[in-house]
Amino acid sequence: VANSVLFPCTYAFSGCHITLPYNEKVDHEKVCKFRPYPCPCPGTLCKWLGSLEAVVRHLTNEHDHVITLKGEYIIFLATNINLIGGFDWVMMQFCYGFHFMLVLQKQENRNGDQQFFAIVQLIGTRQEAEGFVYRLELRRHRRRLTWEATPLSIHENIATAIKNRDCLNFDTGTVQLFEENGDLSIIVSINMC
């Protein structure tokens, strides 16, 4: 009986007008663009939830360390890369009418081993993210390390992608090859595909 009745999306209150059978409702709600989004800023334990349109405004107003740079081809210069402990370097890149969050995360385990993870997340839906490809590149002294992938969407979790190593992943030895005076340059390019 439930499958013969159309149910409104749970996020109708924030503007979704879709009605669908019960067995399709859960899948739709996972990707519904009217779903409230958590703050994507890593490492801050921010509890904010809001609409997709409000995410960038929230990041700009409440996380003022997050700088935005315009352009599809930029250099993300992570400073003090050799600090001991866990750190995040976070910024936003604005191009093609979209904001992309760029994250470099350094994790340190109990043995003092350090791992670095760099990833790009679109402040947009999965469907919008699939229209882009990002490239992260380390370059120095004729060495080059490149990662290319589809950006995560706001529906996807950076922590999960890092856990799965679905990002640019390198260790301290690699940092020593590419850093300059304690700063690491990551060349970021975003293209439409």
Partner: peptide, 24 residues
């Protein structure tokens, strides 16, 4: 050939939340 010179931004490190540090 024209080479594009990308803009560069210095990004300062933010301390990771303590409870997340040892999740490797």
């Amino acid at each position: 050939r024209t080479y594009r010179v990308p803009k560069e931004v210095r990004v300062e490190p933010q301390k990771f939340a303590e409870e997340l540090i040892h999740r490797l």
